[in-house]
Simulated assay, not measured.
Amino acid sequence: MRRRMRHGEEEADVNMTPLLDIVFIMLIFFIVTATFVFEEGISPNLPEPSPQDEETTPPPSLLLTVQEDGFVLVDDVRLIDPRSTRPVVEEFLASEPEGVVIVSAAPESETGTTITVLDQARDAGGPEAYGRITVALQGEM
């Protein structure tokens, strides 16, 4: 005959420690004995650098900086009137046919002055030089 448990008696306690020990030992065993397969991916075909690319130099450039006072600074050397930009650009393009003209405008310079300088530079270079005349606007840092 089986006795019924009373409220005052202790219940049976299951000890889980040996089970957890075995699980961790098996986990360590499987990690140590596992083989890791490293598969190669696709290797990109990169172009080899050519010696021409390493030795190329940028084309000569003429920097026209439109200042806040309305004058144009040529290559940070001399100051000219915006309406006399055309002869300066013509002289530069005559000596450097592959040259590039950069028009840089200060943040507080007048828009009309910058457009005058740009138009004169484009007129001096002709239609074939339109791709070699660039405008850069300076911003506040």
Rank of each mutant, 00 (worst) to 15 (best):
residue 7 H to M: 10
residue 19 L to D: 05
residue 1 M to C: 01
residue 16 M to K: 11
residue 4 R to T: 02
residue 24 F to Y: 11
residue 27 L to Q: 08
residue 12 A to S: 01
residue 34 A to V: 00
residue 28 I to D: 07
residue 33 T to Y: 02
residue 6 R to S: 06
residue 18 P to F: 01
residue 23 V to K: 10
residue 33 T to E: 05
residue 21 D to I: 14
residue 34 A to I: 01
residue 25 I to N: 09
residue 5 M to H: 10
residue 33 T to C: 05
residue 13 D to T: 12
residue 27 L to W: 08
residue 26 M to C: 15
residue 9 E to N: 05
residue 13 D to Q: 12
residue 13 D to S: 12
residue 13 D to W: 11
residue 28 I to L: 14
residue 22 I to K: 14
residue 21 D to S: 14
residue 20 L to R: 02
residue 2 R to Q: 02
residue 20 L to E: 02
residue 17 T to P: 02
residue 11 E to N: 07
residue 33 T to S: 10
residue 31 I to E: 07
residue 29 F to I: 08
residue 9 E to G: 04
residue 15 N to H: 08
residue 11 E to R: 12
residue 1 M to Y: 01
residue 5 M to N: 08
residue 27 L to H: 06
residue 27 L to E: 02
residue 22 I to G: 14
residue 16 M to Y: 15
residue 1 M to D: 01
residue 13 D to G: 09
residue 28 I to V: 14
residue 27 L to P: 02
residue 32 V to Y: 03
residue 19 L to Y: 12
residue 33 T to K: 06
residue 7 H to R: 14
residue 9 E to T: 01
residue 26 M to Y: 12
residue 8 G to E: 10
residue 28 I to A: 15
residue 3 R to A: 04
residue 29 F to P: 02
residue 28 I to C: 14
residue 12 A to I: 05
residue 15 N to Y: 04
residue 23 V to S: 10
residue 15 N to C: 04
residue 3 R to S: 04
residue 32 V to S: 04
residue 12 A to W: 02
residue 6 R to E: 00
residue 20 L to Q: 00
residue 19 L to R: 09
residue 23 V to M: 12
residue 10 E to V: 07
residue 29 F to H: 00
residue 9 E to L: 02
residue 15 N to T: 05
residue 25 I to G: 15
residue 11 E to A: 13
residue 27 L to M: 13
residue 29 F to S: 08
residue 9 E to C: 04
residue 24 F to H: 08
residue 28 I to M: 13
residue 26 M to P: 07
residue 25 I to C: 12
residue 29 F to L: 11
residue 14 V to Q: 03
residue 13 D to V: 13
residue 4 R to Q: 01
residue 1 M to Q: 03
residue 21 D to T: 14
residue 31 I to A: 14
residue 14 V to F: 11
residue 7 H to N: 13
residue 11 E to W: 07
residue 29 F to R: 00
residue 24 F to T: 09
residue 27 L to G: 15
residue 26 M to D: 11
residue 5 M to K: 10
residue 3 R to Q: 01
residue 8 G to C: 03
residue 24 F to I: 09
residue 1 M to F: 03
residue 34 A to P: 01
residue 19 L to S: 09
residue 27 L to F: 14
residue 32 V to C: 04
residue 8 G to P: 05
residue 28 I to Y: 09
residue 10 E to S: 13
residue 2 R to S: 06
residue 33 T to V: 07
residue 25 I to F: 13
residue 31 I to H: 07
residue 16 M to P: 13
residue 33 T to M: 09
residue 22 I to N: 11
residue 18 P to E: 01
